[in-house]
Design a protein around this nucleic acid. Structure first.
Lengths: 199, 199
DNA sequence: TACCCTACATACCGGTTTGTATAGTGGCAA
DNA sequence: TTGCCACTATACAAACCGGTATGTAGGGTA
């Protein structure tokens, strides 16, 4: 009860209404799925009225899209954070796979939020879809830069193969919670790096 | 109107009510997602009343589970069919990847139905979840047998890596419809086979 | 003939969905 | 002081959700 700018019933959650909604959406959508969480539940859990939610996001689809954009933003921050301190290409690559491994065995892991959203948002016109694609492009770009830094002759080819291993491992880890898919993907990725860059 | 055992209003769709329901469920659940398709819509599209649907499957969850089981059955048939005629391990492996490639570029492709169902069925107690796991185990077993036939020293290791490539390629192809993920996964899988078995 | 089984049609249940309309409240700035 | 702003509270609308109750029609079989 320290700095809630605008009064109201106590909602132990700090931050502006908008931030609280986005944070709650991120948690609930990821935990239970987007369709499974109604705006009533969402607003109540965020300590906000439905009117406020609609004033900020216009519609549930709008909220979903902004939630995905926010998630993408945080995801990029995380990627840069776990890579900070890595110097060689091999270290940077390992940082990515280590980060993913840590994530897949953490409590509450339920797969890639963007892939999951892609499964749920069947309408190809949904505003969230382009954010999903943007996020995946971000990963591909990141991996391509590593392959370039390593001096691979075909960086985008190598990056794409790393991406397949990474995405496959996440899917595998989603169904049976286990660190080995990521571990194995990591090993395969390093082997490929040494073959392509070292040779 | 040839052999519908039990009368009824004409429902151009052939087969028993049960089969029609399962076939319709398979189509609609895959196209639009499980949660997005209500039992009312489903029954109407199958040319069946809701009462009949509930008499056969008990609940929507029951229908979902039986639909997944049916899908798994058909999936295994397809796998054996595309592999028929393959003799060497390499041919059998390529048959799998070719089959997947054909699938991912076909009209209406919307990813792996089992992975998608796994995303939607967040309840870990849902009866469909074990069928999803069974299906994935089927793939892993199939790939392991190929690795064994090829004489790989660590067949399950190799199979798991093939699996990562395969699953990753399907996810990639789902977001941006394109044959290249499968193509690249295929190439990587063959390279791995030659390294492990040939060396 | 009598019964059963399957499927039909229709209507209903309580609850939930997204979204809106209306009125009130507290703080802040001009 | 006046007015704006962001918010609360409540109530409602129309559609849809999964699921059930009731009653009927018709072929298969004993």
């Amino acid at each position: 009860m320290v700095d809630t700018k605008h009064s109201g019933s106590m909602t132990s959650e700090p931050g502006s209404a908008r931030q609280r909604i986005l944070r709650t959406a991120s948690r609930l959508f990821y935990e239970s799925g987007i369709r499974a969480v109604g705006v009533n539940t969402l607003a109540a859990r965020a300590g906000v009225t439905k009117v406020t939610l609609y004033a900020h996001f216009g519609s549930k689809d709008g909220l979903v899209a902004e939630h995905l954009a926010e998630r993408d933003r945080r995801w990029r921050e995380t990627l840069e954070r776990v890579s900070a301190g890595s110097e060689t290409a091999e270290q940077r690559l390992s940082a990515v796979f280590d980060g993913y491994e840590e994530w897949t065995v953490a409590d509450g892991f339920r797969g890639c939020g963007f892939v999951n959203a892609g499964v749920e948002l069947t309408d190809p016109e949904h505003p969230g879809r382009e954010i999903i694609e943007r996020n995946k492009d971000g990963i591909r770009t990141w991996l391509t830069e590593i392959a370039e830094a390593a001096g691979c002759p075909d960086p985008s080819d190598v990056a794409e193969e790393w991406f397949l291993l990474l995405e496959g491992a996440v899917v595998r880890a989603t169904l049976r919670k286990d660190a080995t898919p990521l571990h194995r993907a990591h090993r395969a990725a390093l082997r490929l790096l040494r073959e392509e860059a070292g040779g």
